[in-house]
């Protein structure tokens, strides 16, 4: 699965995107845990009490899972675009 990452997460994973060997039917929660497993430094940035931190987002087709009905349990379908990023704002 191809995952795009942004901002301060990029230096940690070493690039703009990563490929993770995740099976069909993977949930956002499993994706996040898999990323933390691969890059432990992401742990304190992505997780809070075992769930996705409010300081980070996972977008599924441009929608933050915070606002999707299944939240972290959203199942990622084939062909969906995934972005993982810290919560940031600008001016």
């Amino acid at each position: 699965m191809r995952i795009r990452v942004y901002a301060t997460f990029r230096p940690i994973v070493g690039g703009k995107e990563v490929d993770l060997p995740l099976p069909p039917g993977t949930t956002v929660r499993a994706l996040v845990l898999s990323m933390v497993d691969r890059w432990p430094e992401l742990g304190e940035l992505l997780l809070q009490d075992g769930a996705l931190s409010r300081r980070a987002h996972v977008f599924v087709d441009g929608r933050s899972t915070r606002y999707l009905a299944e939240g972290d349990d959203t199942v990622i379908e084939d062909g969906q675009e995934i972005d993982v990023l810290p919560a940031v704002a600008g001016g």
Partner: peptide, 21 residues
Amino acid sequence: KKGGLSVYGTNVITNITNRIG
């Protein structure tokens, strides 16, 4: 030097607003 605004400036959000439409 750690927060997204400090490291990348205000332009840190271009990729993000792009993705959310």
